[in-house]
Design a protein around this nucleic acid. Structure first.
Length: 802
RNA sequence: GCAGUUGUGGCGGAAUUGGCAUACGCGCAUGAUUCAGGUUCAUGUGAGCAUUACGCUCGUGAGGGUUCAAGUCCCUCCAACUGCACCA
């Protein structure tokens, strides 16, 4: 074969053949073992694909292709998470309907993805903006509503002043909008909320049985932030009413020296008349209210507060009278909005007490509480604590919690940092919420038969400063009749967030054209759960958590067959520019995958992205590195010139072949694509060194390399006359016994320092190995031998003394 | 501040978990091919001292320790990145 490697023709040719032959369609043959590989579907932005996209797509494409060769029925789908702000903003700016913008962007993305030769089953493509799809997003919302998990409430929301939209807590980063960096302020609004907190315990506990990378588990746990403690009632002096607080350290109850109310605590207004320094308190409260969350965290260093004169609390364990302060370091949104302060054993309380000269009473021995708060719970014994004296912290917690319950002044309590999900967005380009408000009947769900509730055509998609969605201006759409009583009613004009459509899309892939259900029972039973889901770390506390929540709810509703959607979750690192910085237009370091495909070919791009470095770490782009991968593929291509016509493996290469099959196979499974490729490069180098390759050896190399570089290997497979299509070939087997060499070179050390090497039989006895080592060392071994160590097949170490 | 991750040649990165550090690739050097450049091929490439030899010394962020043996385990630091940020 003398033709040069021309990726352009080859890649186009095979992409068309695969499409015609439906090479990668997941079948409905439910008797075969299944494998569901999933990558996060992209948001089809106007910029098109960037080089970050192919990294995870290629990785799971490799897994999917390998699984097919191993006989699995593989589902590897792709779709579009297409609702969202950038499209809407683009539509506003250019006066094009967002539907058209989305359509164009999807077309572009799809073409780009197809040019990379992914083995997606395109017949199962989904699009969240398709009414046939969002019908079921709305259907799930109705289910949540009927189950009481979607509820409306007045509450302050995070309002992005630039996007003019409410944000979930998860979308506010450092007090600014995650998306645009705009200022976020608090606005009170009537909101649809989803009760994710109902599943808080399960979302933590069920992580246990899942194969998620540890980082993901840890951040989900931290985000949910479960803590165990107790609520305790302190009485207010000379009052009937109690002041309830939450603490994780009830064992330190004897060390309480003051109480703190959050500035929003209701008791402040309630006891206004008895507060002697009202002016001062009111002023402090005003000042705290004016601070945005951003300022609160910026200025977190310095504690502020004012003592409330005229109110005091009584410690239930010893009857001591305790002053009450107001301070914004206590949040109304967590616990009860009031705390007992134990400066000796809490850093924040300690800081506050030092600043305002409040007493510090040590109740757990082990530190110096005048110097710093002693917060270690693992060690330490209770002191100055009446009946708790002498107990360890853990034991003291149990004892005091029981005591609190017996005396009816408290109870055990679990708390979460996780808040309910602020669901709606005041924008046009999202799923309409299928609820109407009737003056008589309240909030009424649309009947299922009226789904999908389609987005109406509007004059303007412009968001409004009033906080209303653009839909609110569509009065003939808004005004409707109540499905319940037939009277006049108004539609909900907020839309759903982008997270809605992506919270269940993996279910739709199993049965994407079903018109009677979000997916058929049999399809779900067969395909779910997803066997391997790869996606970005940035979605850990957003999409990944939200979709687990929806899935658990659907499981409880008996819609899906398993309590968890994803069995395995991995995460890829980012691809940075040549300069090691994040790729961005402003930095001028963006690499366009189209350019790489044009210049080097899709197979080279795929190979390079897998070879660039450890899959889970970020890596910098290198144009020279791309060239090196192209060189590798060129050498594979030209290897055909060295074919010697023999069928099996040659005797001298047998071990190397078996070793390489083993290594490449296990490396693909463990996301170690870089070393898998390195092993194939090494094998190739060996063929060149030998000056010849058998057909059997070449065949194996083609199968191993196929998942990474599918086009050129398929072409070689055909031109060399191997049977059928390469994508239908079987994954090669290896024989463990044949991966071991007969003779091995072992290192020889004297006193732990490398001196020479010696080649011995792999199963040589210790005596033989030592003898061979001594011979090799010769005169380099001096002194009296005091110890001889032989690690079979690895090393000999002789310890000698003079 | 807390949590997580990372630190290995000129660069990207390997190292079967305690056993020959730097596989594989890039870059570079020398040579071959070429009118020349590019491509391709061959050889070399951690540092230092030596080059009489393939010889010695040092070397995986810093410092200590355990061990016959440490990139890998333990202790104390330092730096970078990414989350979270007063959650009682």
């Amino acid at each position: 074969m003398s033709t040069a490697y021309e990726p352009k023709q080859i890649e186009k040719k095979w992409q068309e053949i695969w499409e015609q032959e439906k090479a990668f369609a997941a079948t409905d043959d439910y008797t075969k073992p299944k494998y569901y590989a999933l990558v996060e579907f992209p948001y089809p932005s106007g910029q098109g694909l960037h080089v970050g996209h192919p990294r995870p797509y290629t990785a799971l494409d490799i897994v999917a292709r390998k699984r097919r060769m191993q006989g699995y029925n593989v589902l590897y789908p792709m779709g579009w998470d297409a609702f969202g702000l950038p499209t809407e903003n683009y539509a506003i700016k250019n006066h094009i309907h967002p539907r058209i913008v989305t359509h164009n962007n999807v077309g572009r993305f799809k073409e780009q993805l197809k040019s990379l030769g992914y083995s997606f089953d395109w017949d199962r493509e989904v699009n969240t903006t398709d009414p046939d799809y969002y019908k079921w997003t709305q259907w799930i919302f109705l289910k949540l509503f009927q189950a009481g998990l979607a509820y409306k409430t007045e509450m302050p929301i995070n309002w992005c002043t630039s996007c003019k939209v409410g944000l979930a807590n998860e979308e506010v980063v450092n007090g600014v909008c995650e998306r645009c960096g705009g200022e976020v302020v608090r606005r009170v609004r009537s909101q649809w909320m989803l009760k994710i907190t109902e599943y808080a315990d399960q979302l933590i506990d069920d992580l246990e049985g899942l194969d998620y990378i540890e980082r993901v588990k840890v951040s989900q746990k931290n985000w949910i932030g479960r803590s165990h403690g107790a609520e305790v009632d302190f009485s207010l002096k000379d009052k009937e009413e109690k002041l309830r607080i939450y603490t994780t350290r009830p064992d330190t109850l004897f060390g309480v020296t003051y109480m703190v109310l959050s500035p929003e605590h209701p008791y402040i207004d309630k006891y206004k008349d008895e507060i002697r320094n009202w002016e001062e308190i009111a002023a402090y409260r005003e000042q705290a209210a004016r601070k945005s969350d951003f300022e609160r965290s910026e200025l977190a260093k310095e504690k502020t507060g004012v003592e409330i004169q005229g109110l005091s609390a009584v410690n239930p364990v010893n009857g001591k009278e305790i002053p009450i302060w107001i301070s914004d370091y206590v949040l109304m949104s967590y616990g009860t909005g009031a705390i007992m302060a134990v400066p000796a054993h809490d850093e924040r309380d300690w800081e506050f007490a030092k600043k305002f000269g409040l007493p510090i009473i040590e109740v757990v021995a082990g530190g110096n509480v005048q110097e710093a708060a002693f917060t270690d719970v693992a060690t330490g014994t209770l002191v100055n604590s009446g009946f708790l004296n002498g107990l360890e912290v853990a034991e003291a917690k149990k004892t005091i919690t029981n005591w609190l319950a017996e005396n009816k002044v408290g109870e055990p309590k679990k708390n979460f940092k996780l808040r309910d999900w602020v669901f709606p967005r005041q924008r046009y380009w999202g799923e309409p919420i299928p609820i109407v408000k009737c003056d008589k009947c309240g909030y009424v769900p649309l009947p299922e038969s009226e789904l999908p509730l389609e987005l109406p055509e509007v004059e303007s998609y412009m968001p409004t400063d009033t906080g209303e969605s653009p839909l609110a201006a569509m009065t003939d759409w808004v005004n409707t009749t109540c499905p319940c009583c037939g009277g006049p009613a108004q539609r909900e004009t907020d839309t759903m967030p982008q997270w809605a459509g992506s919270s269940w899309y993996f279910l739709r892939y199993t049965d994407p054209h079903n018109t009677n259900a979000l997916a058929g029972k049999e399809a779900l039973a067969y395909w779910m759960p997803v066997d391997w889901y790869n996606g970005g770390m940035e979605h850990t506390t957003l999409h990944l958590l939200y979709s687990r929540f929806w899935h658990k709810f659907l499981y409880d509703e008996k819609v899906v067959p398993c309590p968890e959607p994803y069995q395995k979750r991995t995460s890829h690192g980012m691809i940075l520019g040549e300069n090691g910085e994040k790729m961005s237009k402003s930095r001028g370091n963006v690499v366009n995958p189209d350019d790489i495909v044009n210049e080097f070919g899709a197979d080279t791009l795929r190979t390079y992205e897998m070879f660039i470095g450890a899959f889970d770490l970020s890596a910098s782009w290198s144009q020279e590195g791309v060239r090196g991968c192209r060189r590798f593929l060129d050498r594979v291509w030209k290897l055909a010139e060295l074919l010697n016509g023999e069928e099996g493996y040659s005797a001298s290469m047998e071990t190397k072949m078996h070793q390489t099959i083993k290594k490449v196979g296990s490396d693909y499974e463990n996301l170690k694509f870089n070393t898998a490729i390195a092993a194939m490069m090494a094998l190739l180098n060996q063929f060149y060194k030998n000056g010849s390759v058998t057909r059997g050896e070449f065949k194996t190399l083609l199968v191993l390399l196929n998942p990474v570089a599918p086009h050129m290997t398929e072409e070689l497979w055909q031109t060399l006359g191997f049977e059928g299509r390469l994508y239908q070939a079987s994954w090669p087997e290896y024989d463990e016994a044949k991966t071991v060499e007969n003779m091995v070179e072992v290192g020889v050390q004297v006193n732990g320092k490398m001196r020479t090497t010696v080649t011995i039989a792999v199963d040589a006895s210790k005596e033989d190995a030592i003898a061979a080592a001594k011979e090799a060392l010769g005169s380099k071994l001096a002194g009296t031998v005091v110890k001889e160590i032989y690690v079979p097949g690895r090393i000999v170490n002789i310890v000698a003394k003079n």
